[in-house]
Nucleic acid binder design. Structure first.
Length: 628
RNA sequence: GACCUCGUAGCUCAGCUGGAUAGAGCAACUGCCUUCUAAGCAGUAGGUCACAGGUUCGAAUCCUGUCGGGGUCGCCA
């Protein structure tokens, strides 16, 4: 029986006997730490019913509770706030029942339900950066949250392995690569391919520089009527434009036009056509370079603790969705324009018209996503599908989900976009063109190096072997990184300052790990013993009660985190628990305590805390360390 | 231009389904290691919750407007 529920019921019946029928549900809050009490009931909304002052109403309910509810030991009233103190026996009982409950923290809100979490979804033309790190860590953690809440989870990765961006790396490697391979250079495959992507962009910039200059001053004649009209239109706008933002956008548009007509880009576009036509040389090069990238990604994923049950490749799925477009045309959800392109009108839903198939019958981004959605649900029979994708695609997913609903897909209501904010640098957004990306591999390595330096500086690890030490540095470094990222609300954008290193003190992963290691040290010296079977002291001290109360909250927090798809909830909780325990640790001795019952109770409390911290860190994809 | 989103301490973030005196961490300053790990604990200082209205017993939280940051509105993905 849930404590809060029991208390609510008691209050409800107290109100009923005192004032007659009460229609409003009883809302309880945790008592503000500055006041005495465990739960607080706010009586203001009841005044109409009680026809009395706030104080009198609160006192009347309090008296009634004290008399009739065995779980209530005392109460106090401050203005309209009824602070209820629970019987400490309840906390002793809770500890007794749960201290070595191995499944404490697992819940059942997702029992019998299946969910797919799609995340990572990298492009195979360059290595992963800090933005991907946030995506991956969120994906893993959200999947863990669903698992621990009882869901059956499929972790999926939709790899963007085709398209013009891949061809750029391929062209550059063909032209300037001199047959370089990961083996010949000793470079990680994804970094090697990324290097050629950068080389391509540089070559393109150099090649188009003179043309862009003339184009920006109106002295350029693009090839083809369409391009000429477009250029004329943009250039016309540019001359009218006054706003700085608009000017730079129009300039970018012109640059884009010029680039698209450059010889290098044409070559790249031709390669994409050859790829789609299945030209063996192109396919073979594509396979070779993709393989390099995958082997690089594998290393990064492994180090981050990221894994998948199901891979989808866009090279396989990019033609999906066309059948659905036909289906939608027949049912009248979509319509065809004169040029043969297919559209959906979403204006009634506050959105725009949206293209779902080009006039030449080829797919656009959303066509694939429509098809892939069907595929996912057919293949795995999931009840829900979570897309972990950046918030720049909010509109896209709004449209996608609406389309699936209009197509009458029963699963449409189970589709969710976990829209996370970008990771910004102090200078603003990360831009690969400007070389301001924070590389994932570099970042992880820096964190591990820093963990090593910090550990050596503290010098508390004698007796550990070389490999144990390396494992420790890895755990601590990744813990700091993961916690730093997961601590903030996924929906918000966050700032990362490469100049200031990520902390190992305060609200950090290592702080939680430290608290765990500290407890392990105590448990090691306690060993196996009669403390495990001893009875529980029910005359608990305030600090002990507070720690137990924090533990008691954990399953609720897990459910909250799961419902909100927010690992940040777990981070905040873990900080709270670790801090509370550390205060308890400072105030109450464990091994030095002479009363055996008190000592044994505290050992159980420590044990339970350690288990909960380990479970919470596990949800975040962070491992605990036994010593540090 | 339209729509979405954010604005809380010097910095990074909690709190937001309305409740009491707005909380942490970092940075600064003070204390606490002959007693279970000081990656810790206790404390000092730091706030016009962007601004202006509104809703009500009560607003950081809900509504409207203004200002500021970011994003989207491609037959790119």
């Amino acid at each position: 029986m849930n404590l809060e529920q029991a208390l609510s019921d008691h209050i409800a019946s107290a109100i009923e006997t005192l004032y007659g029928s009460n229609t409003q549900p009883v809302k309880l809050e945790r008592t503000n730490p500055d006041f005495a009490g465990d739960y607080t009931f706010v009586v203001f909304p009841l005044l109409r019913l009680s026809k009395s002052t706030p104080e009198a109403t609160a006192n009347a309910i309090g008296e009634s509770l004290k008399e009739n509810a065995p779980i209530v030991s005392d109460f106090n009233v401050v203005k309209g706030f009824l602070n209820i103190v629970l019987n400490t026996q309840i906390y002793a009982d809770f500890l007794k029942d749960n201290w070595n409950n191995a499944s404490f923290g697992q819940t059942s809100i997702g029992k019998g339900k299946k969910v797919m979490v799609e995340y990572s979804s990298p492009n195979t033309n360059k290595p992963l950066h800090l933005g991907h790190v946030r995506n991956n860590l969120l994906g893993v953690s959200v999947a863990n949250l669903y698992k621990t809440a009882g869901y059956d989870v499929v972790m999926a990765n939709l790899v963007n392995d085709r398209g013009i961006h891949i061809c750029k790396s391929m062209i550059a490697w063909q032209k300037f690569g001199n047959g370089e391979t990961p083996e010949s250079t000793g470079m990680k495959g994804d970094h090697l391919v990324g290097k050629y992507y950068v080389i391509f962009e540089n070559a393109l910039r150099e090649e188009t520089l003179p043309t862009i200059e003339s184009a920006l001053t109106g002295n350029w004649t693009p090839e083809g009527d369409i391009a000429q009209t477009k250029y004329a239109a943009i250039y016309g706008q540019l001359q009218q434009a006054t706003e700085e933002k608009q000017i730079s956008k129009l300039k970018d548009d012109i640059k884009e036009l010029v680039r698209n007509q450059s010889p290098l880009m044409r070559e790249t576009q031709q390669m994409l056509r050859d790829w789609e036509a299945g030209l063996p040389e192109v396919i073979s090069l594509w396979q070779t370079m993709n393989a390099w990238v995958y082997s690089g990604f594998e290393k990064t994923y492994a180090r981050l603790g990221v894994s998948f049950d199901q891979y989808y490749y866009e090279s396989n799925t990019y033609k999906l969705g066309k059948d659905v477009v036909d289906e939608g045309l027949q049912s009248g959800v979509f319509y065809r324009k004169a040029d043969g392109s297919v559209w959906i009108d979403l204006r009634e839903d506050g959105l725009d018209e949206k293209l779902v198939l080009r006039g030449d019958g080829t797919s656009v981004y959303i066509t694939q996503d429509i098809g892939t959605a069907d595929l996912k649900f057919q293949q795995h029979q999931v009840d829900q599908s979570i897309y972990v994708v950046g918030n720049e695609q909010d509109y896209h997913f709004k449209v996608l989900f609406l389309i699936m609903k209009k197509l009458g897909r029963p699963f449409a209501n189970g589709m969710h976009h976990l829209s996370y904010g970008m990771v910004d640098l102090p200078s603003g957004k990360m831009k690969s063109r400007e070389g301001t990306v924070v590389d994932a591999d570099d970042l992880v390595q820096e964190m591990v190096d820093e963990a090593k330096a910090k550990t050596i500086e503290l010098g508390k690890t004698e007796g550990l072997s070389e490999s144990e030490l390396n494992h420790l540095y890895e755990s601590l470094g990744l813990s700091a990184l993961k916690f730093f990222i997961l601590k903030v609300d996924p929906r918000k954008r966050m700032l990362f300052n490469p100049q200031e290193s990520i902390d190992f003190q305060g609200d950090t992963g290592p702080f939680i790990q430290y608290t765990y290691a500290r407890i392990q040290s105590i448990l090691r010296s306690a060993g196996e013993g009669d403390w495990q079977t001893s009875e529980i002291n029910s005359a608990l001290l305030p600090m002990e009660i507070e720690t137990i109360q924090t533990l008691y909250r954990y399953p609720e927090e897990v459910n909250k985190a799961c419902n909100e798809s927010s690992p940040a909830v777990i981070c905040q909780y873990a900080i709270d628990l670790a801090r509370t325990f550390n205060r308890f640790y400072n105030e109450c001795h464990i091994m030095r305590e002479t009363d055996p019952i008190v000592k044994n109770t505290r050992l159980k409390l420590a044990y339970h805390t350690a288990h909960t911290l380990k479970h919470a860190l596990g949800l975040l994809g962070i491992e605990v360390v036994e010593r540090m």
